[in-house]
Simulated assay, not measured.
Amino acid sequence: MTLDSRRFTITRADLVRYAQASGDHNPIHQDEAVALSVGLPGVIAHGMYTMALAARAVEGWFPGAQVVSFGCKFTNPVVVPAEGGVELEVAGEVKGTEDGLTTVALTVTCGGQKVLGMPKAVVRA
């Protein structure tokens, strides 16, 4: 079963708030010059923030469900422009349900490029 895609806009202000909440103040997430100096294409979103937005999509598809496991690999950066924002799209497909657990395969993209590798959630409804 295919689930309706969820879209999230990520702005630089979101990165500042996430850094404050998480304690991850790595300058590649806020300072363009630092990001470029280490070979990145610009300021990038925190991988864990990107993962959290994917988890938010799962919560939207299965409100009130318990997330039993959630995992992924960080494969490509989400570059966040100084002005406006960038759109993250999370698509999901139910792969099966067994013993009250539902496995959901995710596809997380930005600008048509996958940014999370093998993202998967298991929920108990």
Rank of each mutant, 00 (worst) to 15 (best):
M1Q: 06
R6G: 12
T9V: 14
I10Q: 07
I10A: 07
I10C: 07
A13D: 15
A13T: 08
D14F: 06
D14S: 03
V16W: 14
V16S: 12
V16D: 15
V16Y: 12
R17E: 12
Y18D: 00
Y18M: 00
Y18S: 00
S22W: 00
D24P: 02
D24S: 07
D24I: 08
Q30W: 10
D31C: 08
D31H: 09
D31E: 13
D31I: 08
D31M: 08
E32S: 06
E32G: 10
A33Y: 11
A33N: 14
V34F: 15
V34D: 14
L36A: 11
S37G: 01
S37T: 04
S37L: 05
V38P: 09
G39E: 06
P41G: 03
P41D: 02
P41T: 03
V43P: 06
I44F: 06
I44S: 06
H46S: 02
G47T: 04
T50S: 13
T50R: 09
T50P: 06
A54K: 14
R56P: 01
A57V: 04
A57C: 06
A57S: 13
V58A: 09
G60T: 01
W61L: 02
G64W: 04
F70D: 04
F70N: 05
C72F: 05
K73N: 14
F74W: 00
T75L: 12
N76I: 09
N76M: 13
P77I: 00
V79K: 13
V79T: 15
V80K: 06
A82H: 09
A82L: 10
A82S: 12
G85Q: 13
V86N: 03
E87G: 03
L88M: 10
A91L: 12
A91E: 14
G92I: 10
E93L: 12
V94A: 07
K95E: 15
K95C: 15
K95I: 13
K95Y: 10
G96C: 05
T97I: 07
E98I: 14
G100F: 05
L101I: 13
T102E: 01
T102D: 01
T103I: 03
A105T: 03
T107H: 11
T107Q: 14
V108A: 07
V108G: 12
G111L: 14
G112V: 06
V115I: 15
M118S: 14
M118V: 10
M118T: 13
P119L: 01
K120G: 02
A121W: 08
A121E: 08
A121D: 04
A121I: 05
